[in-house]
């Protein structure tokens, strides 16, 4: 199988630079007055900043009153379930409280900020509820929500190497009978009993072939990597 040109020997792990320039620019262009000194103290932005900088519970209560119904409505639109929608109010408004210190006017309007985090929490909540794989979350899909603006220019180089070599070439060096048992057990995740039935060989024979095969493979891989 020498024709495989995909060499997945190593996968480097590193960080990814944030890309939210366009988003931030867009936010500045929007209609809400964003110069901090000209902010209406009753505006959503002022309230959010008061929550973030002074832990103002009054401001939070006011924001809660202004937005909880809308958060609930988004939940109903997506989940059509009243309890889940109420849970979304909890999740989203908790995020508003917790992340308010990260909000500043560069991040856009308070409304947009709260909408996107509502959308994101809803996405995560629904995936959790449906028990879908948690490898990707809303924050990976819609970047920029809570990224540290200051970290923008900072680029870290932290690499971890993960080995994903193709064992094909090693396996092909084994006798066909040994290849077959390795495939059944390790590739198709069959039990020893299933594999011996499928290959029509006694269980003892399967086990000894497997043992031989694995010993040989370890040897081959060891030789190559020494």
């Amino acid at each position: 199988m020498a024709d495989i040109s995909l060499a997945m020997d190593t996968i480097m792990m590193g960080t990814f630079p944030a890309k939210k320039e366009a988003q931030r620019k867009q936010a500045r262009d929007s209609s809400v007055p964003l110069a901090a000194n000209r902010l209406d103290p009753d505006s959503d932005e002022s309230l959010l900043i008061a929550v973030g900088t002074k832990q103002s519970t009054d401001a939070f209560n006011e924001l809660f009153n202004r937005f909880s119904k809308r958060v609930f409505a988004h939940g109903m639109k997506i989940t059509r379930n009243e309890q889940l929608s109420k849970d979304l109010v909890q999740e989203a408004m908790l995020t508003v409280w917790q992340k308010a210190p990260l909000y500043d006017l560069d991040r856009g309007t308070a409304q947009s900020w709260i909408f996107t985090l509502t959308r994101n929490r809803c996405f995560d909540m629904l995936r959790k509820q449906k028990r879908q794989p948690s490898c990707v979350s809303a924050d990976d899909i819609w970047p920029g929500e809570f990224e540290d603006v200051d970290a923008h220019g900072k680029k870290e180089h932290e690499f971890i190497e993960v080995e994903i070599s193709l064992v094909e070439k090693y396996l092909s060096q084994l006798p066909a009978a040994q290849q077959a048992v390795v495939e059944q057990v390790y590739l198709f995740d069959r039990t020893h009993e299933e594999a011996s039935a499928l290959l029509e060989i006694p269980l003892g024979t399967l086990k000894s072939r497997l043992r031989l095969a694995m010993g040989k493979l370890r040897q081959l891989i060891g030789n190559e990597n020494d």
């Binding site: 040109s5 995909l6 060499a7 997945m8 020997d9 190593t10 996968i11 480097m12 792990m13 590193g14 960080t15 990814f16 973030g52 832990q55 519970t57 939070f60 209560n61 809660f64 909880s68 109010v89 909890q90 408004m93 908790l94 409280w97 917790q98 992340k99 308010a100 210190p101 990260l102 809570f146 990224e147 540290d148 970290a151 870290e156 932290e158 971890i160 993960v162």
Partner: peptide
């Protein structure tokens, strides 16, 4: 929602964005 609000504000706030975990970003051909 008054119970919910009381519960929410009992949580600590975040001071800065959590460090993004470094993740795999290159596939070696």
């Amino acid at each position: 929602y008054s119970d919910m609000i009381a519960n929410i504000i009992s949580h600590p706030q975040l001071n800065k964005a959590e460090e993004k975990k470094s993740i795999l970003s290159e596939m070696h051909m």
